[in-house]
Amino acid sequence: MSVHNPDIKRVTTHTLQELKSKKEKISCLTAYDYSMAKLIDAAGIEVILVGDSASNVMAGHETTLPITLDQMIYHAQSVVRAVKRALVVVDLPFGSYQGSSEEALRSAVRIMKESGAHAVKMEGGEEIRKSISRVLSAGIPVMGHLGLTPQSIYKFGTYAVRAKEEAEAQKLKDDASLLDELGCFAYVLEKIPSTLAKEVTESVNIPSIGIGAGPHCDGQILVMHDMLGINKEFKPRFLRRYADIGDVILGAVSKYVDDVKTSDFPSENEAY
């Protein structure tokens, strides 16, 4: 069962900083719809990310790039309606903040006003400094994202581990410090060496949330469809599958089909 603190009525950005200070790990998962978000929230998760991974697991795209701002707002609205406790963070999708700081602010304001979410997430460091600053200046909390940044997948050309070379590792350290200095409340470290994640986590004041970045981050995040075994194709080393819901659903639907075909369903007791 969950070991979350029942005294916390609503998780805020300040809560996450307190958890880091107390060396209490932060639990995060993605969600994209009302029903799943309600379950995840009730289980005691601290952060729910409405991730642009919806492009993959909800819409079937190969990358996160195709999902639009309107689609992200729709998913965020659905999640926010369900959540009573967790901090809801929404990804700014590809193309909604890289062009200019004005565009970034417009996109972030739309997410906050139209969905009721609590914060936004943006991929990158120095490259998007102005966009981060502009969004923060409007009082909108920003979570950063460093390491493997899926929105830049065509630039990298691979989903391999990032920051293994010294130059890229140094840039990541610099970018993490920059996110802290600008005023971000937390940052994701994706698919980087565990030793680097440990060094960055210990040297930067704001909480780090790892995905494929080892055990030393202040918190961890997984994609809900991956950890529940709904998405069977994705099998990276860092993924721990906590259930095989996909098999359960397949079995249940197959049984339903059989029962309909054989007139076993509905029975006399299931009719009016």
Rank of each mutant, 00 (worst) to 15 (best):
M1R: 06
S2A: 06
V3E: 11
P6V: 07
K9H: 09
T12G: 06
T13F: 00
H14P: 01
K20Y: 06
S21H: 12
K25N: 02
C28R: 01
C28K: 03
L29G: 06
L29Q: 07
T30I: 13
A31Y: 02
Y34Q: 05
Y34K: 04
I40W: 05
D41M: 13
A43T: 12
G44T: 09
E46Y: 05
E46T: 00
S53T: 15
S55E: 07
M58E: 05
A59R: 04
L65K: 13
P66Q: 11
M72P: 07
H75F: 14
A76I: 08
A76M: 11
Q77W: 00
V80I: 05
R81E: 13
V83C: 09
K84C: 12
R85A: 03
R85Y: 01
A86E: 04
L92R: 03
Y97W: 12
Q98I: 14
Q98C: 10
S101L: 01
E102K: 15
E103W: 07
A104R: 13
R106I: 14
A108F: 09
R110I: 02
M112S: 01
G116C: 09
K121T: 08
K121R: 08
M122F: 03
E123F: 00
K130D: 15
K130A: 15
S131T: 12
R134Q: 13
L136N: 02
A138K: 08
A138N: 05
G139T: 00
H145C: 03
T149P: 04
S152E: 03
F156S: 13
F156K: 07
A160H: 09
K164Q: 03
E168L: 14
A169V: 10
A176W: 07
S177K: 15
S177M: 14
L178E: 04
L179P: 05
C184Q: 04
A186R: 07
E190I: 00
E190H: 01
K191L: 08
I192K: 06
T195P: 10
L196G: 07
L196N: 09
A197P: 08
A197G: 12
K198V: 05
S203V: 08
S203G: 12
I206H: 04
S208A: 05
A213Y: 01
P215K: 04
H216T: 04
C217S: 04
C217N: 10
G219F: 00
G219E: 01
Q220F: 04
N231Q: 14
E233Q: 11
F234S: 11
K235H: 06
L239T: 01
R240A: 12
R241I: 15
R241A: 11
G246K: 10
D247I: 13
D247E: 15
G251P: 05
G251F: 06
V253H: 01
K255T: 14
D259W: 02
S263T: 12
D264A: 14
E268M: 02
E270M: 11
E270S: 10
